[in-house]
Amino acid sequence: MSTSVITTLPGPKPMIEEPQSPAAVAMLWVFVVAPFVALFAAVPIAWGWGLSALDATMAIIGYLIAVAGVTVGFHRHLTHGSFKAKRPLRLALAVAGSLAVEGPPTTWVSDHRRHHAFTDREGDPHSPWRYGTGVRALAKGLWYAHCGWFLNPEVTNRARFAPDLLADRGIRVIDRLFLPLIALSLLLPAVIGGLVTGTWTGALTAFFWAGLVRMALLHHVTWSVNSICHVVGERPFNSKDKATNFWPLAILSFGESWHNSHHADPTGARHGVLRGQIDPAARLIWIFEKLGWAHDVRWPDPARLAARRRTV
């Protein structure tokens, strides 16, 4: 196993905290179902009216900020320590990741460290193999791994899986600001759209495209790494689990869909380690390093990767 922080996770603390309240679960349903419905409605709505250049621009910018926050910030930096960041960058990435509306930083990191500690076996919060290997069992598991787990009232124990973040005052503040950051993520495009166009219609279409649809797309791309990237794709490396590389998602996921490579070397700053594998998150980390904002970057070690290549 890698020398990641996750190697020290098993311990006396329980895996699960107190269950979420019914109100919290209901809110999660709203934030999963409403964007999903908006995504399905997008095509017929766009066909007739409502998509402007301003809406598209804000949606793209918002997506890029949030996906960078999740992939570079929540995942590679906070979860795995793939690089060290100057304090302003660390906090900016935590805020950007929160704008993806996938949970506060400490909760997201706790879930993901638990996933790595128990990948595709009992204890993994979102393995698609939890119900078995049959067709019906796998279909049920894929749904659960994709978004069903997000609605589970169990809460991963943050004191066990993310004590470093609980000890970070700045991250604790961002955790507490999660609800206002949700409002900012969804409502700021509407405010800008209304001010620029001077109409309620401009505010509404901006909210729809740059708020709901943008968020829904990012959610389902991220969740596809949990579901699709543990069932479909290639496994060029030995990773002791069922993680796969799924190239169609590489650009939209910012390189996260090179999931087999990641599970073979969890602390690596680059997941797309083979020739031709596009990894925008790694390129962004490289830029941060060149600017002096990031240091101690754990770039792939060719010898270590070669030792983990599958021979058949």
Rank of each mutant, 00 (worst) to 15 (best):
H115S: 02
A203I: 02
G255M: 03
P125D: 06
P10H: 06
G134Q: 03
T156S: 11
A38W: 07
V43W: 15
T267A: 15
V43M: 14
A100P: 07
L187M: 00
V33D: 12
F83A: 04
L165C: 03
T133F: 04
G48M: 10
A38I: 09
F74K: 13
H75T: 05
A190W: 01
F31Q: 09
R283N: 04
I60V: 15
D296C: 05
P163T: 09
A26H: 05
D111A: 12
A85N: 03
W258N: 06
V273K: 05
V191N: 03
N152G: 01
H115P: 08
G276S: 11
Q20F: 04
L138H: 10
L305W: 15
D111T: 11
G97V: 10
W209H: 08
S239I: 01
P88K: 04
M215V: 15
A183P: 09
V173E: 03
F31C: 02
A159S: 15
V173T: 08
V95C: 10
A203L: 02
F118N: 09
S224L: 04
Y131A: 06
F178H: 07
V30W: 13
N260L: 07
L284M: 08
N245P: 12
A281K: 03
L64G: 10
M58I: 13
T197H: 05
